[in-house]
Design a protein around this nucleic acid. Structure first.
Length: 838
DNA sequence: ATAGGGTTAG
């Protein structure tokens, strides 16, 4: 028994025919019946067609079954309509049932050209590649429609070359390449970025008089945009007399995809002037452009417009809004949109995750990832790239390793973006060897990946490795971009090779690469860190002459340059610059100002800035407490610490480092110990090496060496150079020579690549009065290519604070600032001497 | 015919 009652339908039909033949008014009745049949068949066809268009396929099929039961022969046109209905709805299984009926009804229907073509279209639209191709190849007549269907299919499933081969074959077979196949061929050319092929089609279309077709024109726009030639796209766009919404959208999308955000926004406004209503497509691109230019008002306008136009908050629109809000830093608004969205996919979730990472909210990003897992959403490569960025950002090696192994288990590490983020994470966590290994294991490396490793080497000051990599990438046919050049400059400056860095700076310009704000800032802070403060300021002037405006980050680096140089004069100049230009006084800038004044010796000015700030955040407090610590004003530091607690601001580990160091300088043993306990037990902060270092220093300074040694033994990790340094400083006058020697031995065994250890060792020797050894350590450090950090000291003589700068010259002459200070201590009766190692 | 996401430098 078949489901459609074929057998009963056939017998009914036979009976009806017999009745008609036996009737006396046979001829008349036959004629009338035929006419009625004609009328009813036509009306049925119309009804079926409209049912199919409305999407009520079931009703259409039922109607056809009814007709068949009435014994009416169903023609190809009806089956065609049904198949078209299945095409609209992508109803594969129903279409296959109809295909079955067609085959059972015999060759008359099945071999009809219209039906054969419709079947190819149906299977193509349902992405049934194999069936569609088989049917297509068996066709007796391959017409424009079936070619278009098969090309569309190949294009959709990414077989763009094959689609274009079909296009050529169609042409060779003498078929007219019409305005249905041309858009498909253009789409394939665009996806392949075959600009030559696309242009040839453009020429053909114009010659054949299809240039005016809006479908062809929009496809041309899309193709030129995908090939990265927005100029040509714009030319096509301008020639369209009656632009529809798709044309406008395509133009805006082209600009956005090619980074021409200003142009995208301008086109959007042109469209508004023309009175064309925006769609989801328009607004998502507009929002993307606004996000990339940080145009807060424009993006908000876009959001308002979407609401006013009554657009549904779909995945696409919602995602664009989340992207916009998180890129401009309004994370809460991004969260609101996320909460309002009814349907969310992995892109939506990823956007919020990366939004959190971008705004430094690593914990929230990871929390969201956990929610994603509980909702059974699969992490994809984009999720992992964000997670790894979070690991890199927070220097979380454990998370980095977990993420890396997840990528390996799920075959995500072959993705370049993911691989780059893994390299970056290992590099930022100090695992350069791992970073290098992942880099070399990655087969397809892009520019970003090269730049990631380049930046890692540069950060370490491995200028030789940096340069080698820089030339190697060019040998492999990858031209460096501005970021690559900037890293090379940074690498040289971090190594102290100032003149080579300046050579590279000139070389890049002679090759037509224009330095940007990052280049200038790198150069300025590099010069300052290498003790060339005046040159740094001259370079700042050149930067302004080149028309580059500083942002808050570069202002900060200038201020830290002043701090490194211990130049109050330059610091004041920058402060004046900020005031004159009315630059925004963001929290980081204010911190740097407080820090600069404190480290340049003017604690009073630092306090004035501090008092000026109405809403004081934790970093501001930290900066001020650190300033007091530096000036040995432990009482003030402690009172500020109390005020912080009164204002219900939670101190962090930096706060404790500062306040403990203040106690250490002032020799406040009880307070120091209490603070340490407060930190560990009340604030649940895990004590780091610096905290133990301060404690050791506090104990050592009051000659409680035994207690200090006990503390070191109880520490949960290996003591570092700073701790040994504190101990050595304390036991300078200790009679136990053997103890000193043992400590020195331990110090020498510490990790050799860490420049901090050398500095501490050299300081320890100096503090112990062993000038020659201190000098030897410094030389050894230089020999091994480690970054040399010149220090400066604040010396309080009477009521005045003086800054002494240990540049290269004074260092070689006096064998270190500590010797100079020791001399000063005798000659000038220094009341307090606070060395600062930057 | 047009549509949203990730990775690099101070």
């Amino acid at each position: 028994m078949d489901g459609f009652g074929w057998a009963s339908r056939a017998s009914l039909f036979k009976a009806d025919t017999r009745k008609l033949q036996n009737s006396p008014t046979h001829a008349a009745k036959l004629n009338e019946s035929a006419r009625n049949f004609q009328i009813s068949y036509k009306s049925y066809l119309t009804r079926i067609s409209s049912l199919c268009k409305e999407g009520d396929l079931r009703a259409a099929v039922d109607l056809v079954s009814n007709l068949e039961l009435q014994g009416i022969t169903i023609g190809p046109d009806v089956y065609g309509e049904l198949l078209q209905g299945c095409v609209y709805e992508r109803a594969l299984s129903l279409g296959q049932q109809i295909h079955g009926r067609i085959l059972k009804n015999g060759e008359f229907i099945a071999k009809n050209e219209y039906i054969e073509t419709k079947l190819v279209i149906f299977y193509s639209k349902c992405d049934e590649s194999e069936i569609a191709n088989r049917l297509f190849r068996k066709l007796r007549v391959q017409n424009e429609f079936s070619w278009a269907a098969i090309m569309g299919l190949k294009c959709r499933i990414g077989f763009n070359e094959e689609a274009l081969l079909c296009f050529c074959e169609m042409h060779e077979n003498g078929l007219f390449l019409d305005n249905f196949v041309i858009p498909i061929a253009l789409k394939a050319s665009g996806s392949l970025q075959w600009i030559g092929f696309g242009k040839a089609i453009h020429g053909y279309a114009v010659k054949m008089g299809l240039g005016g077709c809006i479908f062809v024109a929009s496809s041309l726009l899309d193709m030129y945009g995908k090939c990265g030639v927005c100029g040509d796209a714009k030319k096509v766009f301008d020639k369209i007399p009656e632009k529809n919404i798709v044309a406008w959208n395509s133009m805006i999308v082209d600009f956005t995809h090619n980074g021409l955000y200003e142009e995208a926004i301008e086109t959007f406004y042109d469209m508004r002037v023309e009175g064309v209503e925006p769609t989801q497509v328009t607004l998502s691109s507009f929002l993307s452009a606004s996000a990339n230019l940080s145009l807060i008002n424009e993006g908000k306008q876009g959001h308002a417009l979407a609401v006013l136009s009554g657009l549904e908050l779909t995945n696409i629109l919602g995602s664009s809004l989340i992207n916009f809000y998180s890129k401009i830093g309004l994370v809460e608004d991004a969260e609101l949109v996320f909460g309002e969205m009814l349907e969310k996919d992995v892109v939506t979730w990823n956007l919020l995750v990366s939004g959190y990472v971008h705004n430094g909210l690593v914990d929230r990003a990871l929390g969201l990832c956990r929610v994603m897992q509980s909702e059974n959403l699969r992490f994809d490569s984009v999720t992992l790239a964000s997670i790894m960025a979070a690991a890199a950002d927070s220097r979380n090696l454990k998370l980095g390793k977990e993420g890396h192994s997840f990528c390996v288990r799920n075959n995500l590490e072959s993705d370049v973006a993911v691989a780059s983020s893994i390299v970056d994470t290992y590099a930022k966590c100090g695992k350069l060897e791992c970073a290098r290994r992942v880099f070399h294991l990655t087969i397809k490396r892009d520019l970003i990946m090269w730049n990631t490793l380049l930046a890692a080497y540069a950060e370490q000051g491995w200028s030789g490795e940096t340069l080698k990599l820089f030339y190697q990438m060019q040998l492999e046919g990858l031209p460096p971009n501005l970021i690559s050049w900037n890293s090379v400059i940074l690498g040289l400056l971090n190594k102290g090779e100032v003149s080579k860095a300046k050579d590279i700076f000139l070389e890049m310009q002679s090759l037509g690469v224009c330095p940007n704000l990052v280049t200038w800032t790198t150069l300025i802070s590099g010069l300052a860190q290498n003790g060339l403060g005046d040159e740094a300021f001259l370079t700042f002037q050149s930067m302004q002459e080149a028309g580059i405006k500083p942002n808050s980050l570069s202002i900060n680096s200038l201020l830290s340059a002043c701090t490194t140089m211990a130049s109050l004069r330059h610091g004041r100049a920058i402060h004046g610059y900020i005031t004159r230009r009315e630059l925004s006084l963001s929290t980081p800038v204010l911190c740097s100002l407080v820090n600069m004044y404190a480290k340049c010796g003017s604690i009073n000015q630092a306090k004035r800035i501090f008092d000026m700030i109405l809403k004081k955040e934790l970093p501001i407090y930290n900066a001020m407490i650190s300033g007091y610590a530096l000036h040995g004003q432990a009482v003030e530091a402690l009172s500020l610490f109390r005020r912080l607690k009164e204002e219900c601001i939670k101190p962090d580990e930096i706060t404790f480092t500062c306040i403990l160091s203040a106690c250490s300088h002032a020799g406040l043993v009880t307070e120091g110990l209490e603070l340490f306990i407060d930190m560990v037990s009340n604030h649940k902060i895990v004590a780091q090496a610096e905290h133990y270092g301060c404690l050791v220093s506090i104990l050592s300074r009051c000659h409680n060496l035994d207690e200090a040694l006990r503390l070191i033994l109880a520490m949960p990790f290996e003591p570092d150079a700073f701790i040994f340094g504190s101990l050595l400083a304390a036991c300078r006058e200790h009679p136990d020579v053997e103890l000193k020697e043992r400590l020195f031995e331990r110090l020498l065994k510490l990790e050799p690549d860490n420049s901090g250890n050398y500095v501490a060792l050299s300081n320890a020797y100096s503090a112990a009065g062993m000038w020659d050894e201190a000098s030897k350590v410094r030389d050894l450090m230089k020999e091994r290519g480690l970054k040399k950090t010149p220090g400066h000291s604040l010396i309080q003589i009477g009521n005045e604070t003086h800054v002494f700068f240990a540049g290269d010259k004074s260092h070689s002459k006096t064998k270190g600032i500590y010797k100079m200070l020791a001399l000063l201590r005798i000659e000038m009766q220094v009341t307090r001497c606070i060395p600062v190692i930057s």
